[in-house]
Nucleic acid binder design. Structure first.
Lengths: 209, 209
DNA sequence: GCCAGACTAGACTGTCCAGTATGATGACGT
DNA sequence: ACGTCATCATACTGGACAGTCTAGTCTGGC
């Protein structure tokens, strides 16, 4: 993201990070147009000029922030995921889905999603990247997971298609509610577990031979 | 929305409608903050003052536009819906879902959805209304439809829960793709039909006794 | 003919804000 | 001691834009 280039870039990382943090908050809170650079400067305890030295423009800062957040979120979701051994498939799918859903419905990620969706017109690339690093990546990993299960006869169907159904069975209701009804509409732990259990049941009813 | 009030309101409906049309286009295109009132005035072939006479402020105009669009969209979805007689349940569910999905994925509605989601922070009420008139209303009608089916032994489960699962089985994948990947990501007719058929199959596998 | 009310073009006010310019401070290496 | 480089505070420029104001036009009813 930062210009590949000529400069030896020993710029103070501390300030850089402070700007990133402040910009993240402000952009998530007020959107792209609603955000003002003076506020980011003062919130990060840095002069406006410094903001412009580190990031060349409001647009560049926005792209950098959103890009890095999507990357980080994607990585978190797919980090430290347990392996499926010979254990109970249903239980494993539940654990997997609960974990995934909990991360995706964190307020910060919900706000990122809203921000990006609202800016599809202005920044279509960002939305594409978010889709690829979010849902698409999850679906790809599920596909890889389902492939051997199909071969072992535990699932019946096209792995990629099953992955997509599974993903949205788990995510759709909570995510879409949260998008519109606000962060407070995210299910509490009990409900989340019940929701996931039922999603997994439906999935297996449709795809277990 | 317009002030309940004193005035006999015989204002030229033609201009009013022209403003509404122009405002709809511009807001959907550029978002709330990105929209400028001079443009709306010129696009509707009306003077700026007239815009302010008909709608008191940018905010009021926005709320009016979005509110009426959500209402209209909701009404369209639930208008002229065929009844389920004694025919084939699976075929009926497919027809129902195809119809619903086609309407919801129209570009104008997708853009409305993006707009509203992006403005959740500034206008939380609008998003709530969109949720109620959109997904919630669909779910309620499905609930009413499933209730007797359950009593006839054709479905097994809580009608409201089944309605929510059915709704998102049908909507989630296309809608979420379209939100982020743009209007061009909406499935063509063939794909849409295949998608719906499979969604219905999954639903019945999970909920038909 | 005249009044009222809707409308018009366009100027104007006040504010906000991205981005730049200026001139100074302090740290660090040579 | 000196240059360099990041940083600072603050002022400024230029443009955008919500909302108001002015002064005048057009139309239909009486």
């Amino acid at each position: 993201m930062a210009e590949a280039g000529a400069r030896p870039w020993a710029r103070s990382d501390e300030k850089h990070q402070a700007i990133v943090r402040a910009a993240r908050e402000v952009f998530l809170d007020k959107g792209y147009l609603g955000t003002n650079m003076d506020l980011i400067a003062s919130r990060s305890g840095v002069s406006k000029q410094t903001v412009y030295t580190h990031f060349g423009s409001k647009e560049a800062l926005f792209v950098e922030i959103v890009g890095s957040m999507t990357g980080a979120a994607g990585d978190r979701v797919h980090h430290d995921r347990p392996e499926l051994g010979d254990g109970d498939l249903e239980a494993y799918l539940r654990a997997f889905a609960e974990r995934q859903l909990r991360i995706v419905t964190e307020p910060e990620l919900l706000r990122l999603r809203r921000l990006v969706i609202g800016e599809v017109g202005r920044f279509p690339e960002l939305a594409k990247v978010l889709y690829e690093r979010g849902p698409q990546r999850a679906i790809d990993e599920l596909t890889a997971m389902f492939e051997p299960l199909r071969e072992r006869g535990l699932l019946a169907g096209d792995p990629a298609a099953m992955a997509e159904w599974f993903n949205w069975l788990v995510m759709a209701a909570p995510l879409n509610r949260a998008m519109m009804l606000g962060d407070a509409a995210v299910p509490a732990d009990d409900d989340l577990r019940r929701h996931v259990a039922e999603a997994v049941r439906i999935f297996l009813a449709a795809f277990a031979p």
